[in-house]
Design a protein around this nucleic acid. Structure first.
Lengths: 233, 233
DNA sequence: CAGTGGTCTAGACCACAGG
DNA sequence: CTGTGGTCTAGACCACTGG
């Protein structure tokens, strides 16, 4: 009846997880400090630290210097979504990817766009609209504004055969971005493009990416009815 | 013009990030190995390792033993969403939280439910429906099935004043789960509960949690029109 | 086989914040 | 002030996998 020894930080993490799930350590409770756990587990403190840090990052533990480590009182589940190029998303599911550019022109954007991109209200941006297809049925409608000041190379691209979605991700650097998910009703035009009934409930992703203080591009992706994004907890 | 030395893994990470964004290291390209980088940065290999591992975890690097470390060819953006108790979500925004139980009874669930929860088709489950409110306006409609076999304590709870959302998260252990986001049209009943027009586009979250091989609970959350979830990249 | 990342260890110092 | 987590270091061995 000797305790099993824990050889790597993953196994330490598993044991800690087990104790949390089994309510040995209850939400809000203080758990032993790293040094003690290291002794108990028969490993170096560094190893325990790695395990606990990883759990803290995923929201299950709350750690503070001097205050110690507690099981999170409000277990925050972090769902991580992989946002990838649409072509890959489709091909990964074994479907045929199709792409069709609908429109590409320079224009002064609506105030809502120039406002959130923090460009001058009168400055023309590149506007690209396109349809992504999976097995020849509409998959997602992409409506994008590109700041030519930042995405210089992207400005000369025609986006006739390669989507802006793919081109920009690959060739234009950015430092950070925002993303939002929502539901919206299909306008008559959107319904026509996606071949669905108007007022259908559509899943929408809005993304805005920045390079420093300059907006690179703002895009709205509208997915055909029934689209889901799933992930594990 | 001596090179700045990098004191902690975060600063190493920043420098690596800078080089990726500045296209010093281009997508798909091999970057120097850990030992070389440690020399260049004037720190221990362990420190470089920590920085690169963290970047690999967030999808920007692709690391393989012997093959070395490459900048991801398809930059996969990982959006992490914090899924928390709805009450906290609302209170964090400075709004008043309200809760109202609509219904609670035992019933044999539809086949779609028992199927995904892998319970016997004839086995009754606990069915709880409730409304979450923010500043007295409907915020989210919760429709939940609870497996009494697993959530024994949860079975006796009335959920009249504390939502199942909150109660289960706090008191019932689970090992893993699945979550899905989608858009759906409001049925007449849903529209009435959420005080919106029928066929409004609603944002939906479906969650299924497991304790080992047994389903704990399956829930659908329907949010009032206009709801968004946002995060940074 | 050999080069790369993955991890462990022991000891050390530091930064922070609770009492 | 002091206990706690955060991190660094140097060296070591291991696990994987490309050539």
């Amino acid at each position: 009846m000797n305790k099993p020894s824990f050889r790597n930080w993953q196994s330490v993490q598993e044991e800690v997880l087990r104790r949390i799930h089994a309510r040995v350590w209850k939400p809000g409770e203080l758990i032993p400090n790293e040094a003690d756990l290291a002794l108990e587990f028969g490993c170096a403190r560094t190893t325990v630290n790695r395990a606990l840090q990883s759990l803290a990052e995923s929201g299950l533990l709350d750690r503070r210097r001097k205050a110690g480590t507690r099981v999170a009182a409000q277990p925050v589940a972090k769902a991580t979504l992989d946002i990838t190029v649409i072509r890959i998303e489709i091909e990964d599911r074994g479907q045929k990817y199709g792409y069709q550019r609908i429109e590409r022109h320079e224009a002064v954007p609506p105030l809502a766009i120039s406002g959130s991109m923090k460009t001058h209200a009168t400055r023309p941006l590149l506007h690209v609209r396109a349809l992504h297809m999976a097995d020849d049925t509409p998959y997602a409608f992409e409506d994008r504004w590109i700041n030519p000041e930042v995405a210089r190379d992207g400005f000369s691209e025609s986006y006739e055969t390669v989507s802006a979605n793919e081109w920009l991700l690959k060739y234009v650097p950015y430092t950070h971005g925002e993303i939002a998910f929502s539901a919206t009703s299909a306008s008559p035009e959107e319904a026509k493009i996606l071949c669905c009934q108007k007022n259908s409930a559509l899943f929408a992703i809005d993304r805005l990416t920045w390079d420093g203080t300059l907006a690179v591009t703002k895009v709205r992706l509208l997915f055909a009815p029934g689209h889901q994004i799933r992930t594990i907890l």
